[in-house]
Write a protein that binds this DNA or RNA. Structure first.
Length: 575
RNA sequence: GCCAGCGUAGCUCAGGGGCAGAGCAGCGGUUUCGUAAACCGCCGGUCGUCGGUUCGAUUCCGACCGCUGGCUCCA
């Protein structure tokens, strides 16, 4: 595969974006131009147009672009004093705004054909060098990303050095669509969302619930092994609690309106932390019992603007795999190391091996003293270094209450997802007086760490579905074995086998449909069931099993025992 | 929330100011031996909701709800 970044590809795509802008200018003489940069997988350009663009417009624009490319006109480059540039872009308010912000006396201009743009470049030598391109979609985008400013129309497109690479890219997009968890969630009967119930609220069907149960069980066992304890807290609490935690002050926009109970306001929890703190504060805590690691699959509800909701990955009710660690300052580093190790282990178990680790430091608005921030940031840094974990610093991206480490993971298609996060919190211990009695008999402030390993079960499962393309490894597959009798006379044999497999702990289904074997195989394939057992006369006669894996691999004449062994191996390896 | 598009059977979709359509799924029957769809029949709909225009609206208009692609924001 060809390198997807690098100056040449950037120049190519940027040039394509100018060629597109020229086509827009030809089609809409009054068009005003925003910006047209390259992005990770292509380019876009923002326009202010007299009417909305349609899908048909894209075809017309592509045709114009093809003509410009065929003409093979040069990209000309020169610089101008700002004053002259202002005259040149007199009818272009967005360009004038950009111009006003440029510090230099002379500005850089590019022209190809009839289109002249304020642009740093670089570009390819001539339009003919842009061969493989495609316009993909139209979307609204605020000028400069500011929702108070005009909304422009953005056209997304992509371009590659060769037609083959463009085709490969389009094939990847098609593959992503095929793996879309919303589509697979319906086809595999994992979950649904209902207009009747409200947007962003997930209903788990038996098969999806089973996968979730398996993940949750694994999660709980792994946490218990590592010295975590499980807690449960109520879903609603009095407004006073959220007042004290500061959520009503800082997080109000994401919280639902109160409900009145016996004249008191109650709120649905958007976070689990205050609940865990109440448990902590139910009695005095000694330095000897720290660290306390309290974990909960805690369901929270947050208001999200309607436009951002998306399948399982952006919802209004979700279950965080949450935990809070209460510890002494001298324990923080070891705790952070433990969290990172746990995160890495869990993610690897689900088949994720590529991570990007980000250390987010103090933002402009923050609580706590500079000194605590520095110490805590240094601790996080040391923890990462102790693990030999490469990381990047994301300056100023910490939460107002403390620094954090975010892990981004890459799925099978190389797309990145927000994964585990570990945050140090200076705010809540202050607000709630989260203390312990030290060796000296005096009260000391505890350090509090919020952390999640999967993020939320909803989002993680959305990610998992796409990562596996719905073909869950054996340990997570809702149905592990489909028994396929070839004719009705093989049904009894199939049922007897099914009973023995269930006894061995496998999740099996006998296909008793009145359809042909081919149809039954197709159905099991579509349901992405890992094993199919094909049972006909010869199997019955020999008391054997013919196994078909969903990969298509065929293993005739196995005994029940050898099949169980095969399955056990896959289960143990979590394949 | 904003811009654009969309909402017709369980699913995927066609249609269009005057009788509501297909394929798949489901149900019934016939059939059923070798690795991704046997055959026949039947059932299935307040055309997202509410309002308006019209003799007549699923179709045109408006509002709302929901979905999709983005923007902004996040687990």
């Amino acid at each position: 595969m060809t390198q997807e970044t690098g100056p040449d590809l950037q120049a190519l795509r940027h040039s394509a974006s100018h060629i597109m802008a020229e086509a827009v200018q030809a089609l809409f003489p009054g068009a005003k131009f925003g910006i047209g940069p390259t992005i990770e997988s292509g380019f876009y350009y923002d326009f202010d147009l007299p009417r909305s663009l349609t899908q048909e417009d894209l075809a017309a624009l592509e045709a114009k672009m093809a003509a410009a490319i065929a003409a093979n006109l040069p990209f000309e480059h020169w610089t101008l004093p700002k004053e002259e540039a202002r005259a040149l872009f007199a009818g272009q308010p967005y360009k004038l705004e950009l111009l006003a912000e440029l510090p230099d006396e002379r500005v850089s201009i590019y022209r190809q054909g009839a289109f002249t743009d304020l642009c740093r470049g670089p570009h390819v030598a001539s339009t003919g060098q842009v061969r493989a391109f495609k316009l993909l979609s139209v979307a609204g985008a605020y000028w400069r990303g500011d929702e108070k400013r005009p909304m422009l129309q953005r056209i997304y497109g992509t371009a590659f050095p060769t037609g083959q690479e463009l085709e490969d890219h389009l094939a990847r997009l098609a593959e992503a669509e095929r793996r879309d968890h919303r589509r697979l969630g319906q086809e595999l009967e994992l979950f649904s969302l209902h207009e009747e119930a409200g947007a962003g609220l997930v209903f788990w069907h038996p098969k999806g619930a089973l996968v979730r149960h398996l993940i949750e069980t694994f999660w709980k066992e792994e946490h218990l092994k590592r010295g975590y304890q499980l807690v449960y807290i109520p879903h609603i609490s009095r407004a006073e609690l959220w007042q004290k935690s500061g959520h009503l002050e800082f997080y109000k926009d994401s919280m639902y309106s109160p409900m009145e109970v016996d004249g008191q306001d109650y709120l649905i929890k958007p976070m689990n932390c205050p609940g865990h703190i109440l448990i902590y504060k139910s009695r005095l805590r000694s330095y000897r019992e720290l660290p306390l690691r309290w974990a909960e699959l805690g369901t929270v509800y947050r208001y999200e603007r309607s436009g951002v909701l998306h399948g399982l990955t952006r919802v209004r009710g979700f279950t965080q795999d949450d935990a809070h660690i209460f510890c002494r300052p001298d324990q923080l580093e070891a705790e952070v190391v433990g969290v990172l190790e746990l995160a890495r282990y869990m993610l690897q178990t689900f088949g994720f091996s590529e991570f990007q680790v980000l250390l987010s430091t103090r933002p402009e608005k923050y609580t706590g003293t500079l000194e605590v921030w520095e110490t805590a940031t240094a601790v996080l840094r040391r923890a990462l270094e102790r693990l030999g974990q490469p990381y990047e610093v994301d300056p100023g991206e910490g939460v107002f209450y403390g620094p954090k480490i975010d892990i981004k993971l890459q799925d099978a298609l190389g797309r990145t997802w927000q994964g585990p996060t570990t945050q140090v919190d200076f705010n809540l211990p202050e607000r709630f007086d989260v203390n312990y009695i030290g060796e000296d008999g005096r009260e000391h402030r505890a350090v509090m760490v919020h952390r999640t390993v999967l993020g939320s079960l909803e989002r993680f499962m959305g990610c998992l579905i796409e990562h596996y393309a719905g073909a869950f490894p054996l340990w997570l597959a809702p149905v592990q074995v489909a028994l396929i009798p070839i004719a009705d006379r093989h049904l009894d044999y199939a049922r007897a086998l099914a009973a023995r497999l269930r006894e061995a702990g496998l999740r099996v289904e006998v296909n008793e449909d009145k359809s042909r074997m081919q149809a039954k195989i197709r159905e099991a394939q579509n349901q992405k069931i890992p094993f199919m057992l094909i049972l006909g006369d010869s199997e019955v006669a020999a008391s054997s099993i013919t196994v078909r894996r969903r990969s298509g691999e065929n293993l005739p004449g196995l005994t029940l025992e050898s099949f169980l062994k095969l399955a056990q191996e896959d289960l143990a390896a979590r394949r």
